[in-house]
Design a protein around this nucleic acid. Structure first.
Lengths: 229, 229
DNA sequence: ACTCAGTAGACTGTAGACAAAAGCCAATCG
DNA sequence: CGATTGGCTTTTGTCTACAGTCTACTGAGT
């Protein structure tokens, strides 16, 4: 029992810098996602280390983790290259993402609670406001938050972990498309909330499948537009 | 053009040792799966390094990869501990595995080819022979090979990658159970082959779902049996 | 007898140095 | 003129050393 009488909530959780490799990992991942490092680019350990002000070791560890997660390709005795996404791979990622999200929607409907639905509605409102304001970054963020919360409601940590990885990579390919179907997307989110609220697993599953399928179609449409533009 | 007249097929592909971290990774993973390293055990870098005859660095890199894949827990400034599987986590893994395998079955049915079905039948025969001979290790291996080939027929590399990871972890929990339902399992495999051969996506999906569900039930049954002892 | 401070040990986290492998370019020979 | 071989440069792969941090034990004080 603590006898200090310190207010529990006020503990500032004094920030530990945490392992360097973590921060290097996040820094590099950010650089890749924002296209500051373009696909196919050769990443030299000493350069990155010097640029980030650390030694080679944390850089190496970060690169290896990025390798296992598919962000960079690590060719033996030659170095790290930013992964080059292919059309085929993008499609496969979308298929898997659809699968995981659909299952999450079903489980969310099965486990739905009052507060959970309430939070979903709040997140949805945030997203709709962002669409109204036409602020792309916030729309993307709100979309991610909404899907993440559905995933959380599913209550399956393994599923969540996998979906997080797949989602980030999908979003890497998909960011330019986000704007195109802003409004329609949030209408479908509303439908999903209704299904979850009614604890209708089949309906939630169907809605999410349609939703992700629309995203996939939108992506392919974008590809065609780029081709002719 | 090679003018040396060397026989092309006879090139022994002289084995490159490959990166040390890879071999350390495989060695450690093997030790974990075979329970030579028991769950919760504290892994000391210097010990492992000395025991394997290498320096700490490759060991570190291997441990970090094992960490991202969920085999060990890496507590900061304290070291690596072999992950301790919980009942809940096992169930969640089985759910995800069922999901991935079911989708693979559907895709395999969609993409089925003559040679592919033929190979499935061959693998199934191998498995049935192993069951007949009652050689546990071979049954497990044949089962893994069969499911891996179904996955390959699905033709989705991302799905394959994820399923491989999940499968290995499931099998870690599940190995002691494998023996119990040897025969029934291969009957269901035959049903799956029939569905794929007929290119009936819905049927393949349903069969695989039932199949994985049986595995899950079997696992829980085993848990109860262990409990009563 | 119990609690708490102080201290010593062990292990990880990070940095720097050395050695080996792969790619590249130029010079040489057919 | 083309192909090959040799050396050179660059980059990774590995090892050793040092500093920071956490844990556990010991000993005194209440």
């Amino acid at each position: 029992m603590l006898s200090t009488g310190l207010p529990q909530g006020a503990m500032p959780k004094l920030e530990r810098p945490g392992p360097l490799r973590e921060r290097v990992y996040e820094a590099l991942l950010d650089l890749i996602i924002t296209r500051a490092l373009s696909p196919g680019q050769h990443l030299v350990e000493t350069e990155l280390a010097g640029h980030l002000g650390v030694s080679r070791q944390p850089v190496r560890e970060a690169l290896q983790r990025l390798n296992t997660e598919g962000w960079v390709d690590l060719r033996p005795a030659q170095g790290a290259f930013v992964h080059e996404p292919t059309e085929q791979e993008a499609d496969q990622l979308l298929v898997v993402r659809a699968l995981l999200e659909t299952e999450a929607a079903r489980l969310a409907a099965a486990n739905a609670t009052g507060p959970g639905v309430k939070e979903l509605e709040r997140l949805c409102a945030v997203g709709e406001a962002a669409v109204e304001a036409d602020t792309v970054d916030e729309v993307v963020a709100a979309n991610a938050a909404f899907h993440a919360y559905v995933m959380q409601l599913a209550g399956n940590a393994v599923l969540t972990e996998l979906a997080a990885q797949v989602d980030r990579r999908v979003r890497w390919y998909y960011t330019p498309v986000a704007r195109q179907r802003g409004a329609q997307s949030w209408i479908e989110h509303r439908e999903l909330i209704a299904a979850i609220k009614g604890r209708d697993e089949a309906e939630a599953q169907a809605v999410m499948r349609t939703h992700t399928e629309h995203t996939r179609t939108s992506y392919h449409q974008r590809q065609k537009d780029d081709g002719k533009g």
